[in-house]
Design a protein around this nucleic acid. Structure first.
Lengths: 230, 230
DNA sequence: CCATCTTTGTGCACGCGTTCACAAAGGCAT
DNA sequence: ATGCCTTTGTGAACGCGTGCACAAAGATGG
């Protein structure tokens, strides 16, 4: 398949084709009218725009379970990331092999960063150590930090930080789970009510999943969550 | 501090106070005019709405580095998540202690889910095993899945899946990093150009970080990324 | 008990992103 | 070469979320 139309791509991605074309137009990927986009050229353009064609040396600090998992994560290499070094404060870890690399002691952090030209650092330390590590990374010239420690990091202007909280995703699932349970309960309620007053039960109840509930002052406790844009 | 105003909270969170009030109004948390919101009551209401007051038993499948890291993650307990069990397909892992729990074999997946009333499953297996695990989880009654494996999972209607790709966050950092580098280069370019034609250099150049570049047909390759809403 | 002050809750307007719809453009068959 | 068909690129309209601004409500002090 040498070319694709925006329509095909949009269908595959589950988005609107116009939006897709407009997005492509931002990066100037000229398609051919009447034909579509040249797949190979398109892939290359997007890869370049996203920085996938560049080599990004990365340093991972804190080689516990999470650090080790990250070091061995397959998805990095294919996206242009190269683990330039693993750093841990624990002397017992130093020298060990993890994912084919030797763990080095914190003392070697700065030289490692400078030698390898690292501009992205990953923090997988306990919360207590994160800020100190962060400071050292920034001081050594790192300008982007991916933080897995459950702390908010303070950084100077010009440094990007992204925080990954593994429990937030679970949180979101739980929220929807609760919502599901709540709606079912509400639906049963509504059915019961409809049955009493002889309304059309199932179809009607299913048709208004978020409608009900208008802030009845009573029952502030055990009731179902109010309607809220998720 | 028994109460807070929306203004204080908004400042702390770095958002607009009106938006914050409007958001609160969705869940019906009535504040008191002239005073603010009762902190304790507010915390309780938000916790309840988010499902933090409920107990969410969770099963983790695939106890490699990542699975182990998740099992030991401190942030779970405080948010109402309880690791009900650890499952691994490798007989060599079975019976081992990880984060205070005994790893159980895949055979025990279904009984575990049913006994503990698990409705949320976490997949931390290699990509190849993920879909099979997913199917078994769904079959056993799990309705929410957090997927760390680098695969897209197919699930029936009514089951929520969230995919966590650890490299995507790095990707985003790299993208901005590239952008930074590009802008600096562009800025230097602009300064040079201004110097030649005697314009006011620094202030002007800094004032239009995204303005330049208007799709000059030439130089499709080595040039700086086009302007694009991040 | 009334006046004043603070802070909430919300109608309204603005702005941005998405979607629609269509003219322009290129391919392809006749 | 000409006309038709397909698909792009984009101007315009729509919808939604955010921010502004103010009236209503409660507290507080005289």
């Amino acid at each position: 398949m040498p070319t694709v139309s925006s329509e095909e791509l949009a269908a595959a991605a589950g988005v609107n084709s116009a939006k897709l074309r407009k997005d492509f137009s931002y990066l100037g990927s000229y398609g051919t009218r009447g034909v579509g986009y040249d797949v190979e050229y398109l892939v290359y353009q997007i890869s370049r725009e996203l920085g996938l064609t560049q080599d990004w040396p990365v340093v991972i600090v804190g080689i516990g379970n999470l650090g080790a998992a990250l070091a061995g994560y397959g998805g990095f290499a294919s996206r242009g990331f190269r683990v330039a070094g693993l750093i841990d404060a624990d002397r017992a870890m130093t020298g060990k092999q993890v994912a084919g690399l030797t763990v080095r002691h914190t003392d070697e952090l700065e030289p490692l960063i400078k030698e390898s030209g690292v501009s992205i650092g990953v923090i997988a330390t306990p919360a207590g150590a994160a800020q100190a590590v962060c400071n050292r990374l920034v001081e050594a010239g790192v300008t982007s930090i991916l933080n897995f420690a459950p702390t908010v990091l303070n950084v100077p202007e010009g440094v990007d930080v992204r925080k990954v909280d593994l429990s937030i995703e679970l949180q979101i699932l739980a929220f929807h789970e609760q919502r599901k349970a709540g709606e079912e309960a509400e639906l049963r309620e509504a059915e019961a009510a409809d049955a009493v007053q002889g309304g059309k039960p199932a179809a009607d109840a299913a048709a208004r999943p978020t409608a009900a509930k208008k802030r009845t002052g009573q029952g502030p406790d055990g009731d179902v969550p109010a309607v809220m844009p998720a």
